[in-house]
């Protein structure tokens, strides 16, 4: 049981961080960013390049991932999403744009980084072993702690900084925020950049554990959408809750249902369908959006 809980918490921490970026973008701009998984992969490859190819410390790779993805996010918002949102009131326009960006990033990743699975050496060696009841490599513990630290930092930033408050105002009521003097374009760009940066940071963190390959983008996006559906789209606390719930469900299912074959995700999807039928807005979302 201890092992199941630890695995669930570890998975939950990384999932929550992935979902945070997605839900931030959704709350600010009402955009379902289908390219979120590709941004995660791009961030992983940037860290890989800096650490494994250039031989620089892991923290430099992580910072590089954050910076590159933040710049990429800002540019995507300014030159792609902003004009489309301005010219089209239809939600599917931004969805198609996001899907197009996902395909484009897949192609760019293949061109820049190749088709192979990539990974960087373990940043911490050794395994924590509590009498064979709980086994957890130290690098996973470190990554989980860093993920939790980033989540806490993000919450504090959103809660107490001027930029965070402006973005929350924007998420609550775009028109009212604009009338109160919030620069909508500026904070939308900052929000998109932060969302992309979070995706890049998770990619950078996990490249030391799971490695990275160009096919990981789509499945990552799907899991991120699952999490924000569980927690409630556009709600930060909901994304965190969704991440931890999905991580725990996965851990419990993979251990307890192992004898029945690969039915864990089947059970998760069935549970989610029933849950959404009862509470379509998710745990913490509001029925009116």
């Amino acid at each position: 049981m201890e092992q199941i809980l630890a695995n669930g918490l570890y998975l939950g921490a990384q999932y929550a961080l992935i979902a945070l970026g997605l839900t931030l973008i959704f709350s600010l701009m009402n955009v379902l960013n289908f390219a979120h998984g590709q941004m995660y992969v791009f961030g992983g490859f940037v860290t890989y390049t800096v650490v494994a190819q250039f031989g620089l410390p892991f923290i430099v790779g992580l910072i590089a991932s954050a910076v590159v993805l933040a710049v990429m996010g800002a540019l995507i918002e300014k030159f792609l999403f902003r004009p489309v949102i301005r010219r089209s009131k239809r939600d599917e326009s931004t969805m198609l744009l996001a899907a197009g960006i996902a395909f484009f990033l897949d192609a760019v990743i293949l061109l820049l980084f190749g088709e192979k699975q990539r990974g960087v050496p373990k940043i911490v060696n050794g395994v924590f072993n509590w009498d064979m009841r709980l086994i957890m490599p130290y690098d996973r513990i470190l990554i989980a702690a860093l993920a939790v630290g980033l989540i806490v930092g993000f919450i504090l930033f959103m809660q107490y900084s001027r930029t965070g408050r402006a973005m929350r105002a924007l998420a609550q009521d775009r028109m009212a925020a604009q009338l109160m003097g919030v620069d909508v374009d500026r904070y939308s760009m900052i929000g998109f950049a932060m969302g992309a940066m979070l995706a890049g940071l998770v990619g950078g963190l996990l490249v030391t554990i799971t490695g990275i390959n160009l096919g990981m983008g789509g499945p990552t996006s799907i899991k991120a959408f699952l999490m924000i559906m569980i927690g409630g789209a556009g709600v930060i606390s909901g994304a965190i809750a969704g991440g931890f719930i999905l991580g725990m469900m996965e851990s419990v299912g993979l251990t307890l249902l192992a004898a029945y074959g690969d039915v864990t995700y089947l059970m998760i999807f069935i549970t989610l369908m029933i849950f959404l039928a009862i509470r379509p807005q998710g745990l913490m979302g509001k029925p009116w959006g």
Binding site: N7, Y10, L11, M216, T220, E250, L254, T255, A258
Partner: peptide, 11 residues
């Protein structure tokens, strides 16, 4: 698309 094989491998 599994990213963490620890729970999968445990049994």
């Amino acid at each position: 698309d599994t990213t963490d094989f620890t729970p999968v491998l445990l049994p």
